[in-house]
Amino acid sequence: MLDVLAIIAALTTAVIFGTDTLGALVMRPAYAALDDATMTRVVGLAHHYGNARMPVPGILSVITAAAATLTALLTGHPAAGAAAGIGLLLLLVWLLLFNRVSLPINKTFIAAAEAGQVPPGARGLQERWDSIINLRAALQGAALLCFCLTLVLAA
């Protein structure tokens, strides 16, 4: 059971890691090359779909990470439990950053895109969002490694 939980935690974390990595490596420079109105429309639409669809893998990653941690500790795999627990902690830090910084900005861009407007300070908002995307990707990547390590240590 531990291996299944760690695999699900890894796969669902990989979805968010890949999305954040794409944002850091591809979308950030692409958005910088757009005028504010186009950037607002594209960013707003992207966040509209992201906010609607990404909670599923995000919630599953946290739940399965917690379950893997608990299962490992209860079945006599303390090292695997520690790895899964660290992965869970990294996901929770990511979630805190996302909810405090990224999500309010996402909502601003979604509302502006739906209204056909450019929010005041649009470029500054996007720069603020961009300011933590590397950290978000790193947290997800490190969590993914922890869940892979959980599999190795539980074997």
Rank of each mutant, 00 (worst) to 15 (best):
L125A: 09
Q126Y: 14
I133M: 10
L25C: 07
V4A: 09
G121T: 00
V93P: 07
A112S: 15
A137F: 06
Q140R: 07
A67V: 03
A32S: 08
A68T: 04
A46L: 05
A115E: 06
H47N: 12
L22P: 05
G58L: 02
A9D: 06
R28F: 15
F147M: 02
G87K: 00
G121Q: 07
F98S: 07
G76Y: 11
L2W: 00
I110D: 02
K107N: 14
D36W: 05
Q117G: 09
A66P: 08
L96R: 13
V43T: 01
D3P: 13
L74T: 15
M54T: 02
V118I: 15
V93R: 10
I133A: 06
A65Y: 11
L153S: 13
L11F: 11
P57Q: 07
C146I: 03
A46K: 00
V56T: 07
F17Y: 12
T64G: 04
T108R: 13
A137Y: 08
N99F: 09
A155L: 12
L45E: 00
T71C: 10
R123K: 14
L89G: 14
N99L: 04
N99Y: 04
L25G: 10
A137D: 01
M27H: 03
I8C: 08
A80W: 00
A52I: 11
H47R: 12
R136D: 05
N134W: 04
N99A: 05
G50A: 14
A6K: 11
W94A: 14
I8Y: 00
A113V: 03
R123G: 05
M27G: 00
L34M: 14
A10K: 13
I133D: 04
D20W: 01
R128F: 01
F17C: 02
V56L: 15
A137M: 05
N106W: 03
A33P: 04
A112I: 03
R28A: 14
V152W: 10
L73T: 13
A115G: 09
R136K: 11
G141S: 04
L95N: 11
T108V: 15
L5N: 13
I133P: 06
R136N: 12
G23I: 03
V15D: 11
I133H: 13
L74P: 03
R100Q: 07
A33K: 05
